[in-house]
Nucleic acid binder design. Structure first.
Lengths: 156, 156
DNA sequence: ATTGAAAGATGACCGCA
DNA sequence: TGCGGTCATCTTTCAAT
């Protein structure tokens, strides 16, 4: 697995912004030929540096959704309990992100729900019903911006 | 702007998983002809339902990064202060997500930093230097999973 | 829905360091 | 030998029927 150089960095930054750009356009921006650019992109995809390419939708166009931030505190339970919870969260589509964290809180969840009934169902099914969970606090997002996972890469 | 039907929903769900699929493949999955599928995708892009298409990178391949969750509490300041802060956060590449929330906390930030020095710089520049900010608490993520903004869409 | 033209991606080959 | 450039071919997209 060869090292990532400045050309790769520039290409990755472009693709993080817009993965639909043609290699010709990207080539122009990074200063390489289209074919060389294409070769690098292919390699980055194959070695997993580019994990996936996805469409980001507009929540407003889809009936609007509410984003919630939930902090979960476990009162008991060991490794296995945590592992089970992780797997559960991974399977719930409304759970967008799940962070296992240090401090008083054990997990921070970012959820997007259709409505509060939706939220109620999830809490019942996965939080209240779990005896290892001591308590959880929910924060409602009024506004969300900068949705993304763009990693800031700097050329050396 | 016409309504989104079940075909659109299925197409969007596919594109949220993998935006590189050809319309032929998607057509097969949703039960439409490739051309009809293409026409719908084009429309969904044009009317903004598909906001953008981006590459998701693998942090591990890029030297590893630390994810932090920061809760910011403002002690004073009105509308203008909040607006300025929002704009600042939007401009900081390390701030992945920014939520304006209800409750004791005013903002929740999700950041990804190279190292703690990186984090230190950001807090100094944007948090400590802002007199309207009363305090902030930082939570370190040990593990993160389910990175994504996939909206769970259900066929009617 | 089918088809044909244009655009883009992929692979082979050459040359240079 | 590895990497970039060019060219030819195949795939995919897009518009017109």
């Amino acid at each position: 697995m060869s090292e990532i150089d400045n050309f790769d960095i520039k290409i990755l930054n472009e693709l993080q912004d817009n993965s639909r750009q043609t290699s010709e356009v990207i080539a122009e921006k990074v200063g390489l030929s289209p074919a060389a650019t294409q070769r690098r992109i292919k390699k980055l995809r194959e070695d997993g540096t580019i994990k996936k390419e996805v469409a980001i939708l507009c929540p407003k166009s889809l009936g609007g959704r509410t984003t919630l931030i939930v902090q979960v505190v476990f009162s008991c339970g060991g490794e296995a309990t945590i592992e089970t919870f992780k797997q559960q969260m991974a399977s719930v589509p409304e759970v967008q992100q799940c962070y296992y964290v240090t401090g008083q809180t054990d997990f921070v969840l970012i959820m997007t729900v259709k409505d509060m009934k939706d939220f109620d169902r999830i809490t019942r099914e996965y939080l209240f019903s779990n005896p290892s969970i001591g308590r959880f606090e929910t924060i409602v997002a009024i506004d969300t911006f900068k949705e993304g996972f763009k990693i800031p890469l700097e050329v050396a």
